[in-house]
Design a protein around this nucleic acid. Structure first.
Length: 499
RNA sequence: GCGCCUGUAGCUCAGCUGGAUAGAGCAACGGACUUCUAAUCCGUAGGUCGCAGGUUCGAGUCCUGCCAGGCGUACCA
């Protein structure tokens, strides 16, 4: 049967006197358009007022336990913008899942064991010697950044000449721990300025000390997943779909990071999480098959393991690339970027792209307070509405801005109905954003809502000579403000009352 | 070579898990501030959705191949 025909039959069964349906019509190749009566939209505002800060929340997660591990940058240097993207995406995904009824646990895995930390210790140690006036070769594979010298100075301040009185091994060990602790504190501070906090900072060193790494290697050996070749221990990841087998213990006896990661991911699932999410930079994507292999070999369901790969960030200034790179001396840190452009702009920019798209982050654009930089466009809605409320109080003596069914019947303008429809879509936007773990959906929702509001603001006045109309419009505008605030809060962006 | 990601307006990006005439911002052009903040709004112009096939009543969206760019392909992380 032709779609048109089906539509005609369907439409005959729709009651003509239904209060919510003004009219229906058949359009195009068989679409039925329902024209909803304006009054049918009014209850949306009531719901927003009743639920307020929880408007949009749901329980689709049904209390499922989710662990999300993000940032997890090595404590061998300051965070850069790439870490920032992972941090902000991870944090917002965590917030979204929480809003949708998941029981979310945020974790930062600290690589405070292994070779990189030894290199960090050596770097600091050598800089200490230089401070003592000794001529030393500073190897290329040591950390070159200025922060190493700052740490070296701090070591000297704290320990004086102690490091020259002990063996190099002991001195380097001390420097390693000292520097890593200090870097973690710095990293934590920067993340705090972004409004990011973790439930747990999980130490690799502690994992190693607990014996869990050794235990899993032994277990996998017994199960035949790990074998010896060329004096090293290899994990049969290829059998689980990886390109090749991977080393877990090197021929010098040192275990690799992968060995710890096997134990770590097993441990995550042992802790009873229904889902574990890792947020990684795209440059780590080759790591996914081996972690999956480890999970499957552990007898767990690899479907519980999800990776969000954030594509790389190109830092620009006026279109010109700014060099980045941890080992070369100079790079712009995340902290410097936040200082320059502000936390809200940094967060919003990272969230106005799908994490799967590469991102050009231009420092000059990020500072502009124009529509190039939509964070202000959205915040301006909140500030404008606050301003209206202030004026309502100060000059119109309106103190009662509670929801009123009577007042709301005056909301009939097409722009107003359009706005309420938009507000009604907020909950499903959140649900979809959480389901797909795509916080950018919320950012785009807010920009769209902001556009509708600004257009409305320019066309209609909220404070009018008609008290009932004014009361109705205040309810509408307050509803918009609540949703804007809720959305921005979820994205970790402030909702200012004045700009 | 192989693997992952990307390719939509001059630029930066969306496109709600296959539906009507593909959207927004910036840039360009023309308008709107004695009125709740012009960090705003209104209008004009701008597209062979990388290319070629395929599936479907219907494809920017799914499949295959190709092209271009990014990343990865260590007994580094």
């Amino acid at each position: 049967m032709a779609p048109q025909k089906i539509a005609e039959i369907l439409i005959r069964h729709i009651p003509a006197d239904h209060p919510a349906i003004e009219k229906t019509e058949i359009a195009g190749p068989g679409f039925i358009n329902f024209f909803i009566a304006p009054a049918a939209w009014h209850p949306v505002l009531k719901e927003i007022f009743e639920k307020d800060q929880a408007y949009g929340f749901s329980n689709t997660g049904n209390g499922q336990k989710v662990q999300i591990e993000f940032v997890s940058a090595n404590p061998t240097g300051p965070l850069h913008v790439g870490h920032g993207r992972g941090a902000i995406v991870g944090d917002s995904v965590a917030a979204l899942l929480t809003a949708c009824g998941y029981d979310v646990y945020r974790e930062y895995y600290i690589n405070d064991a292994g070779r990189q930390i030894q290199t960090l210790g050596l770097s600091v140690f050598l800089r200490c010697r230089q401070l003592d006036g000794q001529a030393v070769d500073f190897p290329e594979d040591c950390y070159q950044g200025d922060y190493i010298q700052d740490i070296a100075k701090a070591v000297k301040d704290k320990q004086g000449d102690w490091i020259s009185t002990v063996s190099q091994e002991e001195a380097v060990g001390f420097c390693a721990t000292f520097a890593a602790d200090r870097m973690i504190i710095t990293i934590r501070e920067v993340l705090n300025t972004l409004g990011i906090r973790f439930d747990n900072w999980y130490s690799e060193q502690a994992l190693v000390s607990s014996g869990k790494v050794e235990a899993v290697i032994e277990k996998f050996k017994d199960q035949g997943f790990i074998y010896e070749k060329d004096d090293a221990l290899w994990f049969k990841t290829e059998a689980f779909g990886d390109e090749k087998d991977r080393v877990v213990v090197r021929n010098n006896g040192q275990s690799t990071y992968f060995a710890s990661d096997i134990a770590y991911h097993r441990d995550k699932l042992d802790r009873g999480f229904d889902r574990i999410i890792d947020v990684w930079g795209a440059d780590h994507h080759g790591y996914i098959p081996r972690i999956r292999a480890a999970i499957t070999a552990s007898g767990k369901d690899e479907k519980q393991f999800v990776v969000i790969l954030t594509q790389l960030v190109n830092l620009l200034r006026k279109g010109v690339p700014v060099s980045m790179g941890k080992r070369s001396g100079h790079f712009v840190t995340l902290e410097e970027v936040i200082d320059e452009v502000g936390k809200d702009a940094v967060r919003f920019i990272f969230l106005t792209r799908h994490y799967d798209s590469p991102l050009d982050f231009d420092l000059e654009v990020a500072k502009q307070k124009t529509n190039d930089n939509p964070v202000y466009y959205v915040q301006y809605v909140h500030a404008r509405i606050s301003s209206i409320l202030k004026k309502a109080r100060d000059e119109n003596n309106i103190t009662d801005t509670a929801y009123s069914t009577d007042a709301v019947t005056r909301i009939t303008e097409p722009e107003e109905i359009r706005l309420i429809k938009h507000l009604a879509r907020y909950p499903e936007t959140l649900a979809a954003a959480a389901e797909f773990m795509e916080p950018h959906r919320v950012a785009f929702y807010l920009m769209d809502l902001a556009a509708d509001f600004h257009a409305y603001y320019n066309k209609h006045r909220v404070l009018t000579d008609d008290p009932d109309l004014t009361a109705g419009r205040l309810v509408l505008v307050l509803g918009i403000q609540k949703v804007i605030r809720n959305g921005l809060t979820l994205l970790g962006v402030s909702a200012p009352d004045a700009m």
